[in-house]
Amino acid sequence: MLAKRIIPCLDIRDGRVVKGKNFQGIRDVEDPVVMAAFYNESGADELVFYDITASAEGRKLFTEMVSDVAREVFIPLTVGGGINTAADFERVLTHGADKVSVNSGALKNPSLIDEAARIYGDQCVVLSIDCHRVGNEYHVFSKGGREDTGRELLSWAREGVERGAGEIVLNSMDTDGVRQGFDLEMLSLISELKVPVIASGGAGCMEDFYRLFEDLPWVSAGLAASIFHYREVAVSDLKKYLAGKGIPVRI
């Protein structure tokens, strides 16, 4: 039986790890290679690195960082941020990434998903979606959550999968950084997708992961940053706790 995956996410700026609250108030924390090795030791199933740098120099540092991590840590590595072309896929995949996550780049040019899936395979293409409630609707936001595209969540997720995205990360901007649990309501809207869904945004304690996998058994993975980052929850403790509750995890 497949294990539910626990995925720490690291935001990277100029090759260093950062983490914000509701995308604001970012502060610097630690070395990516050190953090990746630490997470690997504690049993993380996969790592996600988001490059939040805008400059070309920062991008180069990020690419070098991917190699540094991939030489030390042998679990799947997903990278995202600033992925706008097939050449961007090539750049990170040849430096040791296993999957590439696209967000704003795919919203601007959806055929990027088709092109990347054709060249590198569906399993390489992760569609990351930032979603926020607007009135009674669930809108997809681009540019790190700054711009409302007006697109509705399910329609964009469906289109992404049809175009070849092999996995969806759904990040709820409404619960991100709030630590009151994953956005189960928002996640439920995309339960019909036939690709793995990774829940992101809102994890505040171990029980939040249990609720996620217990209430939405079709969800493949839970992604979080700050609770792991500030060592409030250790991945190893979380997995023991989930295993004790009957959730299949890799220990």
């Binding site: 039986m1 497949l2 294990a3 995956r5 199933d45 569906d122 399993q123 092999g166 996995e167 036939k194 690709v195 793995p196 493949s220 890799r250």
Partner: peptide, 12 residues
């Protein structure tokens, strides 16, 4: 028929 393909992830 609703099972996800590829078989992707950690398995025992």
């Amino acid at each position: 028929p609703d099972s996800i393909v590829p078989h992707m992830g950690w398995n025992e």
